[in-house]
């Protein structure tokens, strides 16, 4: 369903970026004026599977997911979603993808309802179809009480629900989430987790990055670990525990990273 192979992305370094890099830290990703954020990333995820994308800060998770969501164009490599080549046909791919990140915002001066409807319209929905789909989501996410409030005045939990509705309003075939629970309280985190569970039940594949391994334990069928722009593990949750020599996920994660860096 989702298949990523040999993905590469480099950024031109600006002066600002260069300043941040000290000489002592020799990073294998630096090369003259370029910074190779993603050097070789691959993973795949089938119908009904949830894939957890793990990796330390700056590993290249966001960059990878941005390429997957067609916001960034990869330098090399292929991305296929449901048989569509996203590198060649980004526009077609966008219809198939729902995307949400921890830093995604809403239009503050539009109401929750208007926010969702705007994106529905941008996806080409209209009339009865639009109304029906929106109502369905508003009921599913229990949003009716705050639909007509402006997004600026919503609580974080309400905002996140609106964001979720916005991300899936066009019935995407796959859903991509970049740290969807970062900075959320327990209640709101639960909303997100339930949402991912719901998608899984419907058979929609989900790729999400996270730093919380308990979420991985709860939701994921597959795990991919990225370090310094390279995939250093890609397999089932069971294989992850096995290769990491631990039933405890945090420990397994550390072991895998350690093993990778020593090679």
């Amino acid at each position: 369903m989702i298949s990523v192979n040999g993905l590469k992305k480099k950024f031109k370094l600006t002066k600002d970026h260069k300043k941040g890099i000290t000489e002592a830290q020799q990073d294998p990703r630096e090369e003259k004026d370029y910074f190779h954020s993603v050097r070789d990333v691959h993973f795949h995820c089938e119908q009904g599977e949830v894939l957890g994308l793990l990796g330390p800060n700056g590993a290249g998770k966001t960059t990878t997911l941005r390429m997957l969501s067609t916001a960034l164009k990869p330098d090399e490599g292929s991305i296929e979603v449901g048989g569509v080549d996203l590198v060649k046909k980004p526009l077609a791919g966008r219809k198939a993808i729902g995307f949400l990140s921890g830093s995604t915002g809403l239009y503050g001066r539009l109401t929750a309802k208007e926010n969702v409807e705007y994106f529905a319209k941008l996806h080409g929905m209209k009339g009865a179809e639009l109304k029906q789909r929106c109502d369905e989501l508003f009921t599913l996410l229990d949003m009716h009480s705050f639909l007509d409030k402006r997004a600026d005045n919503l609580s974080t939990g309400m905002k996140q629900k609106t964001n979720i509705a916005r991300a899936v309003v066009h019935r995407p075939k796959v859903v991509i989430l970049d740290e969807p629970t970062t900075g959320l309280d327990i209640m709101t985190t639960q909303t997100v987790i339930n949402f991912i569970k719901g998608l899984k039940e419907q058979g929609t594949p989900v790729v999400f990055s996270t730093h919380h391994l308990d979420e991985v334990a709860l939701l994921c069928d597959r795990v991919t670990v990225i370090d310094q722009g390279l995939t250093c593990f890609d397999g089932t949750l069971a294989a992850f525990k096995e290769q990491g020599h631990s039933e405890e996920l945090n420990q397994a994660f550390m072991n895998i990273l350690e093993g990778h860096r020593h090679v």
């Binding site: 067609t70 526009l91 995307f99 995604t104 994106f119 941008l122 916005r166």
Partner: peptide
Amino acid sequence: ETLLLTPI
């Protein structure tokens, strides 16, 4: 980012 991901 979300705006860029619409088919527009």
